[in-house]
Nucleic acid binder design. Structure first.
Lengths: 352, 352
DNA sequence: CCGAAAGAGGAAAAGGTTTACACACGTGCG
DNA sequence: CGCACGTGTGTAAACCTTTTCCTCTTTCGG
């Protein structure tokens, strides 16, 4: 029957194969098989104007038969939207960012969006390049704790359709942000430690360019104003950084230690154990963020808990076109576990 | 000068703005500004046939001036390649998969490729849908420990340009795989425990559909043949699963416990501590995979170490078009830390 | 029974880029 | 001096889909 028609339209150009390069069926294959135009196929499959049920059924059957799936690049080109967001994070191996990525990817998927991801290994240069590169691809870009300078961040903002930041603020129109109130977090931790009697506290600092570290520092200045002594020791954001920073930290003879985040704190606990320093008897230790494992360390880690689920959800909200370009502030809460207690009576040399 | 030319070509159609929908410059803007054809612009920027240095410089300046960046969707459509791979994993929050993702994303980025990611929350149905969906976008698809059935996996293989599996095998042409020899791993662990004197070992099983769990089971059967008693307790792959499975595990009065992976083992250690069961004095515990934190638990976790870096690198190799469609076997090695020791002399009820 | 409106479907343009082909110009060789 | 060839550039097709506009048929109110 189809053959008859083909003969009848003798002036029809001889169609060469309409398969795409990779041998996949195109919309033309479906159209030919269903004996309709490509417009109709598109309408049936992507739902535009109404199509008679009879034709629709024929199209669906044809699509099924040849295994047709629309080419996303063509759709993107035409629609001007890739249904994709980009996520850039300093360290994909860090549980904190892994959790955020998990959350945002789930949110995106639930709204039929894809997630493009890039890790930067804490390198601001790579971060910038990744962001600029991704910006052209995606409908929206999420930068987690970006380390790049503000001017560059503005360049990225200009290059992207929609920019959302996590744990960083930028005075710029059309940029949304979700930030955790680390100032509050640090104050809570310091007050908690202060109420236990701690006066000499070491803070293991995060990466130099991290905005969230600066917020923590503000909290510590508040604590200093309240009479506590804060000793700052350069550290970083990874487990290994914490492990390595312990020895120097101990030379300052603190009674308590606050790590940049829980990941670092786990490294700290580990090194302290090696050194024979008992937590919390000899030294109290606290982290920030409440990573999944923090409830499972020995002893459990006192920390400032912020919900990565909520973080992810809020970030996703910002991609809604109707969302205002403001900054969402998230407040965590103090979680006291076994790693903090009263300082030792007589001050002893912990490493002795 | 440009104006003169424009006047001279009086029959040139009046060009409407050539900006794209989002207001970004297109290749036409650059071409007009540099007074060349779009073909030349493309050649200068993407390097095809040679172009005179004089013209090239003019094009580069023009591109710079209007801030031109090629539209990736258009490039993808034309080239038939998106320079993107897709990664699907059961749980992006699991450090094991997070590490793999980190590695593969880094490898991909180093080769100017992007990484599209999807988490499935251990749901085979979502896994299948994500894979099929992504397959159309990407040049290659990496499925981490897929839980879907073999027939569906074959469908995915058929739908994707190139499929690579991690910790799963599939008899199918054109599918590459990287698998860890868990059979070997479990044997090593059992021999280690056996040499310490353990005869009753609980195994906390992984997800039902995990191929890697089946490999472990093979290892345990070998151990059983060698005279050890293996008690299987259903568990899962997450930290919380381990935590929850401990109580049932203890009812079997084992002297040692092997967890599906290190993540689970951390949960186990935590629950044991709550119950007052001392590791390794009352019970030896071992994990599998050597997660980053495993060296930092208390006590350090005895485990079967497999390099996620190597896993990621090997997986990336498989995407090389010249790579054979075979299965790469990776062997790990036993890492003995503090969590395993001789069983207690007199068998006591651990939870008493 | 006529005209208008609505419904169904097709033709073709548009989306931004790359590249095969064509063309023009100059150079070197026979 | 003519011809082949190489170099640099332009033209237009192609990639695959969606959507606008248009045509044709049907229906319904007057």
């Amino acid at each position: 029957m189809a053959a008859n028609r083909a003969v009848a339209w003798s002036n029809e150009p001889v169609r060469k194969s309409t398969r795409d390069r990779a041998g996949r069926a195109t919309i033309h294959d479906v159209a030919r098989l269903a004996e309709v135009s490509t417009a109709t196929v598109s309408r049936v499959l992507s739902g535009g104007k109404p199509v008679s049920e009879q034709v629709a059924e024929r199209v669906r059957a044809a699509a099924q038969e040849v295994g047709y799936r629309p080419n996303p690049a063509a759709q993107t080109l035409l629609r001007g939207s890739s249904q994709t967001i980009g996520v850039v994070a300093p360290d994909l191996g860090n549980p904190y960012f892994a959790e955020i990525l998990k959350g945002i990817a789930a949110e995106a998927a639930a709204d039929a969006n894809h997630t493009l991801v890039a890790g930067t290994d804490e390198d601001p240069e790579r971060e910038y390049r990744s962001a600029i590169e991704l910006a052209r691809w995606v409908d929206g870009l999420l930068l987690c704790a970006p380390r790049m300078s503000a001017p560059r961040l503005k360049e990225v903002a200009a290059a992207s359709r929609k920019l959302v930041l996590i744990n960083r603020v930028l005075r710029h129109p059309s940029v949304g942000a979700v930030v955790v109130d680390y100032h509050h977090g640090v104050r809570q931790l310091c007050e908690h430690l202060g109420s236990l009697g701690h006066q000499r506290i070491v803070y293991l600092e995060g990466p130099p360019n991290a905005w969230s570290d600066q917020q923590r520092q503000r909290g510590f200045r508040t604590a200093e104003a309240a009479g506590q002594t804060i000793i700052r020791v350069p550290c970083g954001s990874a487990l290994r950084d914490g492990y390595d920073a312990v020895d120097e930290a101990l030379t300052h003879r603190p009674t308590a230690l606050i790590a940049f985040n829980d990941h670092v704190a786990v490294g700290v606990l580990s090194r302290l154990r090696e050194l024979g320093v008992t937590v919390p008897d000899d030294l109290s230790v606290a982290g920030i963020d409440d990573a999944p494992m923090s409830a499972h360390t020995d002893p459990g880690l006192t920390t400032y808990a912020v919900s990565t689920v909520e973080l992810g959800r809020q970030a996703w909200q910002h991609f809604n076109p109707a969302a205002p370009n403001n900054t969402t502030h998230l407040t965590g809460e103090l979680v006291v576990r076994g790693s903090t207690a009263r300082p030792p009576r007589r001050r002893r040399t912990p490493q002795a």
